[in-house]
């Protein structure tokens, strides 16, 4: 798979994928104009990772998601969950700032919907 690097903007997060790390990193805030179009390619990347890799980590550090980005994150996490359900080592590391309840609650919410290993880590 090919490496991906998308720089952050005010309303969209930084996205990084390096095939050698088996890791997709998303960091920043997300409230773009059209979240589905923004994440469409990332969904595809995740689907490809589920097909090709035995282990994979989604590393997320977002301080704010609007509701349509929340919906997109759910889709992305569901794809990772598919990998886990196929018996692969797919997991999520979710970093949050301890002062930010919004990010913590989001993480707890997502974790409750999923079975894959979901680590919520203060930083």
């Amino acid at each position: 798979m090919e490496a991906v690097k998308i720089d952050a903007t005010k309303s969209s997060p930084k996205i990084m994928f390096k095939p050698e790390d088996r890791k997709l990193k998303i960091k920043g805030e997300s409230y773009p104009e059209d979240s589905f179009s923004f994440y469409e390619d990332i969904f595809e990347l995740m689907e490809e990772a589920v097909e090709k890799y035995q282990s994979f980590t989604l590393e997320i550090e977002v301080s704010y998601l609007n509701t349509s980005s929340t919906k997109s994150f759910m889709t992305l996490l569901d794809i990772a969950e598919d990998g886990f359900k196929q018996g692969k080592e797919f997991s999520v590391d979710w970093y949050y700032n301890e002062e930010n309840e919004h990010a913590y609650e989001l993480a707890l919410d997502f974790k409750s919907y999923l079975e894959l290993p979901f680590n919520i880590i203060p930083n």
Partner: peptide
């Protein structure tokens, strides 16, 4: 003082404006 409270107001602002748009 709380970032959580700030994001609460901010998120309602975002949802309202994006809804109109």
């Amino acid at each position: 003082n709380s970032r959580g409270e700030i994001f609460k107001v901010f998120s309602i602002f975002i949802e309202q404006t994006q809804n109109i748009k």
